[in-house]
Design a protein around this nucleic acid. Structure first.
Lengths: 195, 195
DNA sequence: AATTTAACTGAACATTCGTTCAAATCAAAG
DNA sequence: CTTTGATTTGAACGAATGTTCAGTTAAATT
């Protein structure tokens, strides 16, 4: 065969996902057309179908990648230590990760209802897996007696909601550095779950 | 004139907004067509335009009503007392209100980007007004010395994000009553901002 | 230089979109 | 019962939607 795999495809391919990511985050999945994505890439709409079977797959791929990357990044972090240490690690990781990938996070939380039922189930399972990591830490803390006895499932949801909310107001050019934000949120989380 | 103002209009009118509310909450503004709304009401699409100038106004009216109602409901609550009392009141109010109006709340947080710039500015101002109520309480608490000195603006955003997150998992037929949820969240909020 | 084929264009497809409007319908007033 | 006008229908509008595909372009192999 002439021409090795992808001469432009290894350039255009990623750009398609990049453009879809940015546009979906800005205007929402349903409000973005394939022609808008194509224009952003600098190509005609038909060419997109060399890189995705359909629009839905574009959304699903972005979410799937995000969740895989989130779980993989999390897995690299320390696993041992006290519940308090683990919670601080989780908190700082979550804040930093979400600040660094605001578009991906935004889509992952806003566009769930635009997934087909099967795709939704798959993403939801990954999200649940991530939440379970936090819940395990909270339970360990209860057993150690450093965290207040409480409904750990609700605590989990409350903490994650609080932390993820940082993406709605944080701006890199703003008043606070990511380090300061990490510290402020860690302060609140620690107190919220402690005895 | 024959026929006093609205013989069906006082029935159909509210039903249009009701249907739009439910459908927007379930599938998102951009994914819902005027024909879907009309079908839900039991009417042809053209008839909707007796009750709204266009689709955008439907979304804006829902948001505007929601924010007005939120601020009015909040204004009815107690204004005096210690910062701790006020914070408990705010927390319980917010949780209860958001559990009771999950569709409205969902739209108000998810569909902001589908508002025209002018409409967005108006809704955003009302939201800011609501946030400022909480921030004032947190500042009073700092002055009283019962709340830890902190960045009250970020604390505000963090607390509201945490509380509003309740809508993502709470189900009326679920394990916990609204009262229990109120108490659990109040526990976390109190500890999170206290010294 | 000739050949091969991946990458892309540009037009077309059947639907669906928000919106308009003349005509039909129908409940209340005279 | 007739009149009146609010209410709704049903068809139509141009534009936009996701997707397909025959044909063109151009890069890499022979």
């Amino acid at each position: 065969m002439a021409r090795t795999a992808g001469s432009h495809s290894d350039i255009t391919g990623p750009r398609v996902l990049d453009a879809a990511l940015r546009l979906f985050a800005r205007h929402g999945y349903a409000a973005v057309s394939m022609r808008q994505i194509a224009k952003e890439v600098g190509v005609q709409a038909g060419a997109l179908y060399n890189y995705t079977p359909d629009k839905q797959s574009l959304l699903f791929d972005l979410m799937r990648r995000h969740m895989d990357d989130l779980l993989a990044s999390r897995a690299k972090r320390r696993r041992t230590g006290s519940a308090l240490e683990k919670l601080e690690d989780f908190t700082r990781f979550h804040i930093r990760y979400h600040l660094d990938r605001s578009d991906e996070v935004f889509i992952a939380y806003m566009e769930l209802r635009n997934l087909t039922p099967e795709n939704f189930a798959e993403i939801e399972a990954l999200r649940r897996e991530y939440e379970n990591e936090l819940e395990a830490i909270l339970r360990q803390g209860e057993e150690e007696g450093v965290f207040a006895p409480a409904d750990t499932r609700i605590e989990t949801m409350a903490v994650i909601a609080m932390l993820t909310g940082v993406t709605t107001w944080y701006r890199v050019e703003g008043r606070l550095s990511a380090d300061e934000v990490e510290r402020i949120y860690w302060d609140m989380v620690r107190k919220a779950v402690s005895v």
